[in-house]
């Protein structure tokens, strides 16, 4: 895996305080798998600042893109960097989503910036399915056009009812997991509460759910043990996984939510 540099091609503000960042990164783009992330050093922060992890939103044709939300000092500085700025990038990192065989209907569930890896996933899955997107308000619901352009059917829920159904994205899951519905496989990325709810529904319905966890990271490559998550294996044994290296994607049944470390 290269410890590479990548130049910013373009930054575009998207709705709701999100930004789209496109990087020239041929090797990274060629190697990237959906669900993997990059670990970015942000020039402009002090030289002692840690790297920041971001999911890969799109990769191809020598380019790699991320979709990020301004939430703190790192992402605030990132948003000010002009085209041409060179960034130190580690990646692609992490395990990525399994690319389902195609015999089950893929259902993607995304909240906030969690939609980013799902767009990439939708470009690579062997079969088109359904995308359920959620957010507090309409401006937090991103990438509807991406999914539609890829031929996926999109359903939206917002907490204030400003777009789609009023409520939570997990409320949309019900009819897709009903006894009569075609067998499904879930892929989700978003806040912990959402992931946990998706996992619970999937387990109850007897289908798999691949959840992308969002733990704070230091090294990003499995060396420091800052990002751990307790997993329960099929045989009942417990082991402590590293979200950055063994994840960020884990199957819902394995995650021990009450006691991550």
């Amino acid at each position: 895996m290269p410890l590479g540099e990548a130049a910013i091609l373009e930054q575009t503000p998207v709705s709701g305080g999100y930004c789209l960042l496109r990087l020239a990164a041929p090797e990274l783009a060629a190697a990237a798998q959906p669900g993997q992330f990059i670990h970015l050093r942000i020039p402009g922060l002090e030289t002692t600042a840690l790297r920041r992890p971001f999911s890969i939103y799109r990769a191809g044709a020598g380019e790699l893109a991320i979709l990020y939300k301004r939430v703190g000092r790192g992402t605030d500085v990132l948003a000010t960097l002009p085209a041409g700025t060179r960034l130190s990038v580690m990646g692609p990192l992490g395990n990525g989503f399994p690319l389902a065989s195609g015999d089950r209907l893929p259902i993607l569930v995304g909240g906030g910036y969690g939609v980013a890896p799902l767009v990439f996933l939708a470009t690579r899955l062997p079969r088109k399915g359904v995308v359920l997107l959620g957010g507090r308000r309409a401006a937090d619901v991103l990438c509807i056009a991406d999914f539609e352009a890829l031929g996926w059917s999109v359903e939206v829920a917002t907490q204030d009812g400003s777009l789609g159904t009023e409520g939570l994205v997990t409320d949309l899951l019900g009819r897709h997991l009903d006894a009569g519905a075609p067998p499904a496989e879930l892929f989700a990325c978003g806040p912990d509460g959402m992931l946990r709810a998706v996992g619970t529904r999937a387990i109850a319905a007897g289908c798999r759910a691949w959840l992308s966890l969002d733990h704070h990271m230091v090294c990003g490559i499995g060396a420091c043990l800052a990002c751990v998550q307790r997993l329960r294996e099929a045989d009942g044994s417990i082991h402590i996984a590293r979200v950055c290296k063994d994840g960020p994607i884990f199957e819902a049944r394995t995650i021990v939510w009450e006691d991550p470390a």
């Binding site: 840690l50 230091v218 470390a261």
Partner: peptide, 22 residues
């Protein structure tokens, strides 16, 4: 097993960690 999360926080010029020797 080490310590519960969070195990680290970034500070000016450094890092405070409590991995707990996992």
């Amino acid at each position: 097993p080490g310590n519960p999360l969070p195990r680290h926080v970034e500070v000016p010029g450094g890092l405070v960690n409590a991995i707990g020797l996992q």
